[in-house]
Design a protein around this nucleic acid. Structure first.
Lengths: 222, 222
DNA sequence: TGTCTGCTGGAACGATCGTTCCATGCGGCG
DNA sequence: CGCCGCATGGAACGATCGTTCCAGCAGACA
């Protein structure tokens, strides 16, 4: 039987279950990101987390339950790590326009390079479980939608979106940027030694010059 | 025991094994692309291809052998389909510069949309089996490298690469384009109803305006 | 025609899969 | 202290996994 969905708030918890839960989620996230959902066995999660199968099933109910918990945890963790980190660096940036965009892109690339597990998990599961599980796919869609909105918000705040080409949607620009980020990240995963994520991300900045009307003062460094 | 690695050339083949081989490769390719390698069982391949396990193991030796054959077959098939198709349309195009680039990008997007299994297979396996099988990963790297070279070749022929910004490598531009293609394709896989691949690919054309010095005559349609 | 070789049909192998069961331990509460 | 309920340890479940074995059949070659 599965434990209640509520995370034992307030009431007297007998033994600390948070340890088990957190350890399983961490181990499962790494394994899922590395080998995929189908390629990860409960035994592997059990060994990596130092728990027993019965505890895992008590906490999560099924393998799908582990995946749901992992996705939920990773989504919040990712958002706190990557975007908040990029926004924090952005807040320190006094410049505006291209220079500010550069700092933001580099911060994003560094955050991705430092903790690649989440984006790996996201993309791998999106491809692997496309027609399998609607719930996990929806969770992935939500994370991506939020990333697009955050990007659009940054474009507005940094003044890039102020003078877009006519006929070019801001959301479309954000989606395109996200697509380029994803593709560059995958390229870095496939051959890591020949791909520099920071350098790749900086290409976006150059590309942006084509989408805004020329009002800023050039800024054409390499 | 596995059959000889050579594909029974010239010698008298008793019963036609090509049927079995082709059917297994086709079925396995679809299943791998949809569910991943670990998520696809021999039983599923056996049922989808209408063969028996013993025939599969006689032909391919192991599940890894199936994967190797699928990748090899898909690589050539992909290159014939997508890039040759795009080049064929390109050969019919009398224009040059941005218009020619547009036709090429749309042809590429259509080819991807018409047969998405291969790129799905490529990206899924690249993420799923990154630290598992070096051989299949190398095959994937080869396909991508060839795609980058083909892109670069097209950039040269269509006159786009003639006047690149200083400090910007042609190969880097081709790799960036490939990354954007991959990311857009994944976006189309995750939420197909809100993503138009042709439209997304056409963004590349706009972005290119930023990477070449302005010599052509504008060309700023939506 | 007889033999040889290539390939198939069908059953089976041990291992591992996800999952369940139950006895046991260990808190909090009366 | 004794009861209760959450959580664990350990063993086991049937199903399915990838793989193997072998008898049998159909052309090729003599």
């Amino acid at each position: 039987m599965e434990r209640s969905f509520q995370q034992t708030l307030g009431g007297g918890t007998a033994v600390a279950p948070a340890d088990t839960r957190a350890r399983v989620i961490r181990a499962a996230a790494e394994l899922f990101a590395a080998r995929g959902f189908a390629g990860t066995s409960i035994s592997a999660i059990r060994e990596a987390s130092g728990t027993r199968s019965s505890s895992i099933y008590w906490e999560f109910g099924s393998k799908e339950g582990i995946l749901a918990a992992v996705l939920e945890d990773a989504a919040t963790r990712w958002h706190e790590h990557a975007f908040s980190e990029a926004r924090r660096i952005d807040a320190e940036c006094t410049a505006d326009g291209p220079a500010r965009l550069t700092a933001f892109l580099e911060a994003l690339a560094d955050a991705l390079a430092a903790r690649p597990e989440f984006l790996r998990l996201l993309l791998l599961l999106a491809l692997e479980r496309r027609d399998v599980d609607a719930r996990s796919l929806q969770a992935i869609r939500n994370v991506r939608q939020r990333a697009v909105e955050d990007l659009a918000q940054f474009f507005i705040e940094s003044g890039i979106a102020a003078n877009l080409r006519p006929g070019l949607d801001l959301m479309e620009l954000a989606r395109g940027s996200l697509a380029f980020f994803d593709g560059s990240f995958i390229a870095a995963q496939i051959d890591p030694e020949t791909t520099d994520l920071r350098r790749a991300f900086s290409l976006v900045r150059l590309g942006f010059a084509a989408f805004v009307r020329d009002t800023h003062h050039g800024g054409d460094d390499a």
